[in-house]
């Protein structure tokens, strides 16, 4: 084989492998069911919840979150010790390859602290999720109010 052919073959191999290598966390992670809980009046913080699904084979890590709606956004978890709830910041949330991470009440969540203006139902909160490979993804999470009515009652009071 002539040297130029080797170079061409190598270049081709490199190019062919590029689309795979270029898959970032932002490419393989999709966000479903994202929402921000409408905070009660005077509550300085609220939670954003969602499911992060990873279509790639590699484990990815959510390492930060940012939102123009809040002064601070942090990744938090809850530890339960005999009924005592301990909320703690966490450095990262892992999303297993071909797996998912569930951010839900009482567990992992993105904590929004010091909202710039009160959030009410119907608002949409932009959140930028940053992953460990440096890629990021922006989502818009609707604000949802907590359910204050008895489930299944639908106003049926005697």
């Amino acid at each position: 084989m002539r040297p130029t052919r080797i170079v061409a073959a190598a270049a081709f191999a490199l190019l062919a492998s590029l689309p795979v290598a270029a898959q970032t966390a932002a490419d393989t992670i999709s966000i479903v069911d994202a929402y921000v809980r409408a905070p009660a009046p005077n509550a300085p913080a609220t939670g954003a919840f969602m499911v992060l699904k990873n279509s790639g084979a590699t484990e990815r890590r959510l390492v930060k979150a940012e939102s123009p709606a809040a002064r601070v956004a942090e990744l938090h978890d809850h530890i339960d010790e005999g009924g005592v709830k301990k909320m703690r910041p966490v450095a990262a949330i892992a999303i297993a390859g071909k797996g998912e991470a569930v951010l839900k009440p009482g567990s992992l969540h993105i904590m929004l602290i010091d909202m710039k203006k009160p959030l009410t139902e119907g608002d949409s909160v932009p959140i930028t999720l940053g992953f460990d490979d440096g890629s990021s993804k922006r989502i818009d999470a609707p604000v949802r109010k907590l359910q204050m009515q008895m489930p299944g009652m639908s106003g049926m009071q005697h």
Binding site: R37, P39, A40, N42, A43, P44, A45, T46, G47, H78, K85, M87, P105, G106, H109, M111, L112, L146, Q147, M148, Q149, M150, P151, M153, Q157, H158
Partner: peptide, 24 residues
């Protein structure tokens, strides 16, 4: 406490649900 973003609102919403389930 009000800084509690998750556990307290969830509990209070359940308290509210229970109250809404009572007759006048």
């Amino acid at each position: 406490y009000t800084f509690c973003p998750d556990i307290c609102p969830t509990s209070l919403a359940v308290v509210a649900q229970a109250l809404s389930g009572l007759t006048a």
